[in-house]
């Protein structure tokens, strides 16, 4: 083997070994995706969501019935091979109506979230970026508006404006954007004082560039989470309004109105309430766990 002399020869540093980066570097969103995929509950929610959306698209075509044709000879039928989810008091097929309702509920949820997004990002972004007086005034206005109890306002607007898809979305978003605007403002305020933004400013970047390159992309995370969590709350509001008798007008099917119709018959025809109810819960659940999972995946503190 080696002689003692060789062994005790000075060979010096071998920095390449010490400097090697042991973890492969990942882009931020790739990293987020990997962490999200490890979250079993969130993945379950995502799969559930995919199924629900698939059924909302194709479900209504899977039977020979449509959602609005009455069949008074077949009313209040329990679930069977003929009518998978039974029929309601006018003999309409509950399966078709449930998925028809899914379309409406998911549409309302997504539409409300998108409108909140646009107003909220604009309002919060401007307030946070301008700062000073503008910020003070804009956020004060938001504070006062948010002092109005949300559901009471929505109820009031529905009573006054009349029932319909458009009025419902309008009622939901009239103060719904405030939460989003606060989050965007907070993000922008925090980010704009970060050194890399200052550095970019020193290098002569203009407002549009700073907004587009630094502020918006870096606040995407919280914005996405808020959006994901707005959808279930809008679906909840729709169901709630339906349950109060302020939902969509018949024969349109929404989960809220179906549940409301089913309630008086709970004792004898429970399926008429249970099917819409279960799908309301499943949808809200799926969006909630996906939103939670996203938030956890985006939180760098949970990084290992």
């Amino acid at each position: 083997m080696q002689s003692t002399n060789d062994k005790f020869k000075v060979v010096g540093t071998q920095l390449s070994d010490a400097e090697k980066i042991s973890k492969p570097s990942l882009s931020f969103w790739k990293d987020v995706f990997i962490r999200f995929r490890k979250n079993k509950l969130a993945m379950f929610g995502l799969v559930l969501l995919a199924i629900l959306i698939f059924m909302a698209i194709f479900g209504p075509y899977m039977t020979e019935y449509d959602y609005k044709t009455n069949d008074l000879t077949n009313k209040n039928q329990p679930p069977s091979a003929e009518h998978w989810f039974g029929t309601d008091d006018l003999g309409r097929d509950m399966f078709t109506r449930t998925w028809e309702g899914a379309r409406i509920s998911i549409f309302i949820g997504v539409a409300a979230a998108l409108i909140d997004l646009f107003i909220g990002v604009a309002w919060g972004g401007i307030a946070g970026y301008k700062g000073g007086r503008t910020d003070e005034t804009m956020m004060r206005a938001a504070d006062i508006l948010s002092g109005i109890p949300y559901l009471l306002l929505v109820i009031l607007l529905m009573v006054v404006l009349g029932q319909g898809l458009g009025t419902m979305i309008l009622a939901m978003t009239i103060t719904g954007w405030i939460n989003m605007s606060r989050i965007v403002r907070g993000q922008v305020l925090m980010l704009k004082s970060q050194e890399y933004v200052l550095a970019s400013k020193t290098l002569g970047a203009n407002t549009t560039r700073i907004m587009g390159k630094h502020l918006i992309p870096n606040s995407m995370g919280p914005i996405l989470v808020t959006m994901t969590l707005t959808v279930p709350s809008a679906i909840f509001t729709e169901a709630y309004l339906g349950f109060l008798g302020l939902g969509l007008t018949p024969p349109l099917a929404s989960w809220g109105t179906m549940a409301n119709d089913g309630l008086p018959a709970l004792r004898y025809y429970p399926w008429r309430l249970f099917f819409p109810a279960i799908f309301i819960c499943l949808t809200i659940f799926a969006f909630n766990v996906v939103g939670d999972g996203l938030r956890d995946a985006l939180d760098p503190r949970s990084r290992k």
Partner: peptide, 10 residues
């Protein structure tokens, strides 16, 4: 998480 997903009326 189930609890927050089930609206009170349901």
């Amino acid at each position: 998480v189930l609890g927050i997903s089930v609206p009170s009326f349901i």
